[in-house]
Amino acid sequence: MPAQFLTNLFIAFLWTLFQDEDYFKFTTFVTGYIVGIGIVYLMHRFFGERFYLGRFYAFLKLLLIFISELIQSSYLVLKHILSPKIRIKPGIFKYETILESDVEVTALAMLLTLTPGSVVIEVTPKGDTFYIHGMDVEESKEMLLRSLSKFEKAIMEVTR
């Protein structure tokens, strides 16, 4: 991983030097870095590991998924608040996660708590089971479970 990054930086420096400008221009360096990304991507197989920006891309994807979930579920919650009669059936349900490390579990709990309509109330000391309070379990449990597995997949792509 660091080897790829260092190679990329090296290519950027070389690029800057080859331009033979009077003084150091940051824009040239950035251009060189972008060219370097292309080169490193083409030869990342030879480092024997995945492309180092792949993780960054996965993180961006996680962020996008999170934002879309946030908007969808906020809309649901606001709709419930504004409906003339509040007909919600809240409940606490158990969810066993397949994530393992501390960082992954924390990230999942945080994303889940930020999404309106669900709060993580308890995490077992082992860190493999969540107790989630859903605002409207009867109707939106399916949706919650679906977004949970989406989050899990996206988080795993970032950390593994």
Binding site: S74, V77, I81, T113, T115, G117, S118, V119, H133, M135
Partner: peptide
């Protein structure tokens, strides 16, 4: 109750 209120209070 407090649990459903926290949905409105902390996240929206």
């Amino acid at each position: 109750d407090i649990y459903t209120r926290s949905h409105a209070g902390t996240k929206s």
